[in-house]
Design a protein around this nucleic acid. Structure first.
Lengths: 341, 341
DNA sequence: AAATTTTAGTTAAACGTTTAACTACTTTAA
DNA sequence: TTAAAGTAGTTAAACGTTTAACTAAAATTT
């Protein structure tokens, strides 16, 4: 059978309490006994029982990771990478991650994830946009929670966010520095803070370079943000005659849609139109040209969120800290210097 | 504080044992008391403590889900769907899933997932191909395990497999029924049972239609199985003059690579070449033409594996059952009737 | 009617930890 | 020299369940 703390105690000739102190560093133990205990632990291959420990401490050692199923199933491994960051960090922090999805159209009457109902987690991480009514239910459950890449309305949970404004600034400034002035923006709907901020950064960049902002160059009204949407938006923009020489798409998926539209319609990238995305989804290595973009450190989003959550759990204070994770400009083939015909 | 079984017992005027019997249906309880207890449970919003229960039963209520990180991060949400199937089924079975990845090049000396070392799972599900040495380490741990979509060498674990031969038969027969005879096969390396079986099905279909098998039409030597590989293989096939009119690619990712090669080289699909894949990764709705394929029921792979594992855990017998999940022919735009020029 | 079996419930031990309260020394302070 | 404080360890209770062993009453069999 699995060895218990008693076996260790017997083998090293001390009480089980002392063994516990050694395991948890919770009380001073003399060097000799500590070593004796450690040796016994090793030789018996002892591992403390989670359930016993959890029972007495009232903790579970688990953390829930929640996202909508469509986010989880996105073709770009964006949220999966974030999850992996969390999972990885959880290993060193000694937590287990319970991953579950909720429906994108979570209803008032839907069940919360079972680990919340059963209180089988010490806290949860919510990644990406989730329905309002889910957030309300979650907040009623009084569990510590941290949000990633989404600002929950009316709740001051701690958050780990992408520095969207800065990224959009970098992307737009990159295009400007290449000589472009007729720069289009393609974004998702305005109900998501990320798109709002990326648009904000775009505008700021233009302003500070004294380039007039033309609403005719901005498409940001769709609820979705996939390739199809990029394709459609590009169609809207390029069917009018407005001399666009560069496009900043608010994410790579849309950028790929734009790319497809341009290719289908005889525009060369980057010779005729420069194109930059956002996210760096390292999607398609076959993509040609390769896409300039703003790299979002996805693993880091996940690790930071876990660290933050562990802090909240341990301090028991509901610090409403916001961490803004910096992004990085990645220049590839899809952007080049403006060369008028 | 969280209500305990004692609170329920007090409220309903019975002993805690009776409450336990009601919760677990483990001993007959009269209808009246049962109802009284259930009412108390509901009104107190009582949920049994996992840790307490686990401690006494020696179970954990957790199941580990293991796959390599590159599988998890694949652009096609193939394994993520399988996971979702498992997770979904786990909800109704009352288990929690701990998802973790191992490295594709897992080394003898690498640590097993922490939940195995700590024995914090009652069993594990392994999805997709994993390194041999990992399997050996796993099997030394003596945990119940079920494999999905991979046949572990030298171990008779229970498995849930795709009916690859049948699928390949269906795909090839579909092409044959359209009048094609010069049908190429593009597969991955032969070290993976799936590719071997899909090739086998391809050959069987040709044989039973009395179409000679030409090795020049078969490319199956690469270790990887992505788009790039499909692209390269198509190049190899079509650069020789051999009148290929149809291609069966052993997965959709490779099929998409083939499609790209054909498009780049002026061949129309399906007018000039019919193309069918395998998996149905519902990748790119923008793909044109849409891809005929063999649908693999991914969720079902996951649910079946969980059911099987739960069976093993409960029966304590190491039944080495194999479940072959049926596939389905999905005809879309990329295959059409053979029309000689 | 007595003996036996069945049914519905109770009691108490056990699971493997953590930790508050205590003890017995040893060191330091007065 | 004695009292106080510090150190290193022990004892035992507690956490919230499950379950074996038991009891008392009811139902069935003889």
């Amino acid at each position: 059978m699995k060895p218990t703390i008693k076996d260790v105690a017997k083998k090293s000739g001390v009480s089980i309490a002392t063994v516990s102190f050694v395991i948890n560093n919770s009380k001073p133990v003399s060097v000799e006994t500590r070593n004796r205990v450690l040796k016994a632990i090793k030789s018996l291959n002892f591992r403390p029982s989670n359930s016993a420990r959890d029972l007495v401490t009232g903790k579970t050692g688990n953390i829930g990771f929640i996202l909508t199923d469509d986010h989880f199933l996105r073709t770009e491994p964006f949220y999966t990478r974030i999850f992996l960051g969390t999972e990885f960090e959880a290993r060193s922090e000694g937590y287990y991650i319970l991953l579950t999805t909720i429906k994108r159209d979570f209803k008032e009457t839907d069940n919360l994830p079972r680990f919340i109902i059963d209180r089988n987690v010490d806290g949860v991480i919510v990644a990406g946009k989730v329905p309002h009514c889910f957030i309300e239910r979650l907040s009623a459950s009084n569990l510590p929670a941290v949000f990633i890449d989404y600002i929950p309305p009316k709740n001051d949970y701690p958050m780990v966010l992408i520095d969207n404004i800065q990224g959009a600034l970098m992307a737009t400034n990159h295009l400007i520095s290449l000589g472009h002035t007729n720069i289009a923006f393609i974004g998702g709907g305005t109900e998501h803070p990320s798109w709002v901020d990326r648009l904000k950064g775009y505008k700021q960049a233009l302003e500070s370079s004294n380039i007039p902002i033309k609403n005719s160059l901005i498409v940001a009204n769709d609820k979705f943000q996939g390739r199809q949407n990029g394709f459609n938006s590009a169609k809207m923009l390029f069917s009018k005659k407005n001399n666009i020489t560069a496009v900043f798409a608010a994410n790579d998926a849309m950028a790929i849609g734009v790319l497809k539209y341009l290719r289908d319609n005889g525009k060369r990238v980057p010779q005729d139109v420069s194109l930059i995305g956002f996210d760096d989804i390292e999607a398609d290595l076959m993509l040609s040209p390769t896409l300039s973009t703003i790299r979002v450190p996805k693993l880091e989003l996940g690790t930071e969120a876990l660290k933050l959550l562990v802090n909240v759990i341990k301090s028991k204070k509901s610090l409403s800290k916001k961490i803004l994770v910096p992004v990085e400009l990645i220049i590839r083939e899809s952007t080049s210097i403006y060369s008028p015909k």
